[in-house]
Simulated assay, not measured.
Amino acid sequence: MLSRYGAKLAIGLLKLFALLPYGLVARFGDGLGWLLYQIPSRRKRIVHTNLTLCFPEWSDERREDVAQKHFRHAIRSYIERSVQWFGSAKKLEKLIQLDSAIDLTDPNLPPTLFLGFHFVGIEAGSIFLNYSLKRQCGSLYQPMSNPELEEIAKAARARFGADMASRADSARIVLRWLRERKPVMLGADMDYGARNSTFVPFFGVPTCTLTAVGRLAKVGRAQVVPFIGEVLPNYKGYRLKVFKPWDNYPTGDDDEDARRMNAFLEEQIPLLPEQYYWVHKRFKTRPPGVPSVY
Rank of each mutant, 00 (worst) to 15 (best):
A168C: 00
R179S: 09
V200D: 10
K182P: 04
Y192W: 15
A165G: 00
R195Y: 04
G193W: 13
D191E: 11
G116H: 02
P147Y: 09
G138M: 15
M144K: 12
I173S: 04
F203S: 11
R167D: 00
V200T: 13
D169W: 00
V174K: 11
D163Y: 08
S139F: 11
I173K: 14
N130I: 02
A171L: 13
V120C: 07
G204V: 06
L149A: 15
R167G: 00
A124I: 03
Y192A: 12
S139Q: 15
A194T: 10
P147A: 12
C137D: 07
F203C: 06
L133W: 12
F202H: 05
L115Y: 14
A153Q: 14
S126F: 00
F203I: 06
R181T: 05
G161H: 02
D189V: 13
A156V: 06
G187C: 09
S145P: 00
G125M: 10
L115E: 14
F117E: 04
D191H: 05
I127V: 09
E180T: 05
F128D: 04
F128H: 10
V174Q: 11
A162Q: 03
S197T: 02
A153M: 14
S166I: 00
G121L: 06
V184C: 07
S197Y: 07
M190V: 12
N196Y: 07
N146D: 11
R181I: 01
N196T: 03
F117M: 10
Y192M: 14
L115P: 13
Q136M: 13
R172I: 05
T198D: 10
F117P: 03
D163G: 01
G125A: 09
R135C: 12
G125I: 08
F160M: 06
V184R: 10
F199G: 10
Q142F: 10
G204K: 08
A156R: 04
L115G: 11
M190F: 12
G138N: 15
F114D: 10
I122G: 02
E150T: 07
A158W: 08
G121I: 03
E151S: 07
F203L: 08
I127C: 01
E151K: 11
P143F: 12
E180P: 06
R179Y: 06
S145D: 15
G187I: 14
P147R: 07
V184Y: 05
P183E: 08
L178E: 09
A155Y: 01
W177T: 06
L149M: 13
G193Y: 13
E180C: 03
S126V: 00
